[in-house]
Simulated scan of single mutants.
Amino acid sequence: MQFYAGYGYHASNFEQTYRCYPASFFDKPHLEGGDKVIMPPSALDRLASLHIEYPMLFELHNGVTDRISHCGVLEFVAEEGMIIMPYWMMQNMLLQEGDIVRVKNATLPKGTYVKLQPHTTDFLDISNPKAILEKTLRNFSCLTTGDSIMVAYNNKQYYIDIVEAKPASAVSIIETDCEVDFAPPLDYKEPEKPQRPIVPAGKAPAEDQEAIVEDEPKFKPFTGSGKRLDGKGPKQPAPGASSATAAARSAPSDSNKRANQQTASPSGASTSTRQKTGKLVFGSSASSKKEAEAQKEPAKGSEPPKKEEPKFNAFTGKSYSLKR
């Protein structure tokens, strides 16, 4: 068996250097839909002797650019000293055709969380991007933070960055429940907020004008000026008495009721028309009632009853008597 330069035997580890070539060179385009590589048969012999656990995972290292990624293996049919890789993986590691890459077996923890970031917003325009992503990731063995994986759909390629992975920067996604989160696409731009037009200082905006209209005084009852029957000016109410005045106006007073009763009587109406002007003297309703009874019944003495002058009935809610 012939061994190539760079082939190493390290206890229970596999480590080998190969020259990398893209899958298109060997008519294997199906490699582009996943993260698996094709290695030579000698690698399988060495891995079998080391009793490497399945699934077999490997660490890829570009010593020139110090870029690291991880992958799985699909077949062991490549020519000795060569490794066939997906082209998008070579782009991640900044590898050209025929460059040297070091391959080492690795053990990765099962992933529990992965955060992805599409390069363009058109990936989100797919009718069901989640289903397309799940179908694509079935061909992947592991994910490494900092890599950009390729998702092919409807004759178009979409690139997605691995922004974050838990519980480690590189995780296995084989037979595990992994939570997937999306970051805004790289070309995403937040919609600009509409700017308010600049209004000159002398002109108020429409909203301010509406506020001014709303601030105009509304109708308030019982705010008019009152007039007296004797021609004198109305008395100015004391501050704070407006509410009491409004309540007094709403309920009729007892004196107004008595004035209305006296006005309704025919005798009061006839006497008021014949009343002459004179001096006003305030009296009680009881005295006026007694005087009315005295007019109907004559006195028992020898002196003839005095003829009483007709009483004046005012309309201000109180009774008045006129005396000379």
Rank of each mutant, 00 (worst) to 15 (best):
T136I: 03
M93E: 00
D187Y: 00
M150A: 14
A211N: 10
Y153E: 14
K220Y: 05
F123L: 03
R196Q: 11
P191G: 02
V103E: 00
F140H: 12
K166W: 04
A183V: 08
Y159D: 08
D147Q: 09
K227Y: 11
A170D: 03
N155A: 10
T176D: 04
V103A: 01
K203L: 12
A211T: 08
I149K: 06
S127M: 01
P197K: 07
I198R: 09
N92L: 06
V151N: 03
L116R: 02
S141R: 06
K104C: 03
E210I: 12
P205L: 07
K218G: 09
V114L: 15
Y153T: 04
E216I: 12
M150R: 15
K104N: 01
M93D: 00
L124G: 05
E216F: 13
R138S: 07
E134F: 04
L95E: 00
I132M: 08
D147K: 04
D208A: 11
P197F: 03
A168T: 10
R102E: 01
I174G: 00
V180Y: 14
T136G: 05
I198T: 14
L116F: 14
M150F: 09
Y158Q: 07
P197Y: 01
E134L: 07
M90A: 15
L229A: 08
T136P: 06
V171R: 00
C178P: 05
P185S: 13
A168L: 12
L95I: 05
I212A: 15
M90K: 02
S148H: 10
Q157A: 13
L108P: 01
T107C: 01
A170W: 01
G98I: 09
